[in-house]
Design a protein around this nucleic acid. Structure first.
Lengths: 233, 233
DNA sequence: GTTCGGGTATTAAATATTTCATATATGACT
DNA sequence: AGTCATATATGAAATATTTAATACCCGAAC
């Protein structure tokens, strides 16, 4: 983790969070928030927020990819969702709990802003329209998680892996050809199956020509077939 | 569904929704909302809100038990969660979407209040503190769903059924002995497995003495063992 | 009173998944 | 260049789950 408190890493005037804010809030008000903001860079693998730690900040992911990781009481890691910036990471994890329910871990190098949640919350309570917008954004991610989990809980591994590939392609990397920084083990933690099963399934999709695997690179050749497998579960 | 627009079914002064509201809102303001409220009773099995229909109302469940049901594009029913009143049913399903993402269906007879969401939203935008509280409540249910789904996606059927029994006991019926109105098929839709598997697992738990089944009645004899099975997955 | 449909229950066979053992490849570090 | 840890890959055995077939019970409808 690198702290650049003295200089500005990202241009705040380009910030999406600010864009939302100033739709509903005068510049001076926003400045109060901005002063509490802390620009940071995280390297792949670094923990941005740790499960169980106090929630003192709301997090805005400018750039990069993170995983929301939950370690259950058996010590098993479970990936709740994977998201790419720009995105506000709040909601159940950050908005209302005293302690973080999940960890947020960088899967690729990330640029983030941390906002002091106390300052933010008191400003939000006076500014319903902004709050509505923020909650709406934060809720979006939640909805996405729910639908991920519908897939995971009610489909077999073929369908789950298809869903994850579609999700990564459409919502994280936004292209059909991407470098997958997640390991097979991490995909297994996301899909809720053994890593062997992930490998077998990916190999099968590769052999059938639905996807092409070149080391870390994945190319989705036949999105229709993938969606068909997803549909049939 | 029974409409009692002329008379009052439930006592509004006892309403939990009102309680939240008047913590942050003068009586006159609340009256605006109350005037748009519509008290209704639903019988077991009736659809309260239908997936795909327009979201015109926010729903407050006074009394009873509902299931959030999602019908996927293969026509398969999936139960997202089961909740008992009093509870505000909002969040992703109702707050921000033009159309309901899920259906809400009465599992037992229910008393509900429907609030016009337009009126409510405009009042909320002017009243950040109330909004925060409502969003917090709505988010709670979401969190619970997420943890349900962690269970479903990352455990095998024994663990899932255990989790569902624990959940029903602790959060829905609030006692270790309850009349389960859900059919085995519905439990299967919740657990994400075949109904045969539900029956086999429940029978097994029954034989092992962990639970006792008398027709529709379920008694949890050994909560520790159930939690142990849940933990081991 | 009979029929019908739905819920409950059980089994065997087919299929899916995990576990375990093992092997190769890769990158980091010395 | 060698060592270590980790990721990838594969196959066989053990286990879990679904599917399909069948049967019983019970309440609603005729």
């Amino acid at each position: 983790m690198t702290d650049f408190s003295d200089k500005k890493l990202f241009d705040c005037t380009q910030c999406i969070f600010r864009m939302y804010s100033c739709m509903y809030m005068p510049e001076e008000e926003y400045e109060k928030i901005r002063k509490t903001a802390n620009q940071l860079q995280f390297k792949k693998g670094e923990v941005i927020l740790k499960q169980g730690s106090k929630t003192t900040h709301l997090l805005f992911l400018h750039k990069g990819v993170i995983k929301m990781n939950y370690e259950n009481n058996a010590g098993k890691n479970i990936i709740l969702t994977i998201v790419s910036g720009p995105k506000l990471l709040g909601g159940a994890n950050l908005f209302f709990k005293d302690y973080n329910l999940f960890s947020i871990i960088a899967v690729e190098d990330c640029d983030v802003c941390l906002f002091d949640s106390k300052t933010l919350m008191s400003l939000l309570a006076e500014n319903g329209s902004l709050l509505l917008t923020l909650v709406e954004r934060a809720t979006e991610m939640f909805q996405a998680s729910i639908f991920n989990y519908i897939s995971l809980a009610h489909k077999q591994v073929n369908g789950r892996i298809s869903d994850i590939l579609i999700y990564l392609s459409e919502h994280v990397y936004k292209t059909k050809q991407f470098i997958l920084t997640l390991t097979r083990k991490e995909i297994a933690e996301f899909a809720g199956c053994s890593h062997e099963n992930v490998i077998i399934t990916l190999s099968k999709f590769n052999k059938e020509g639905i996807i092409t695997i070149n080391g870390k690179e994945i190319i989705i050749n036949d999105m229709d077939k993938l969606q068909d497998i997803s549909r049939r579960g």
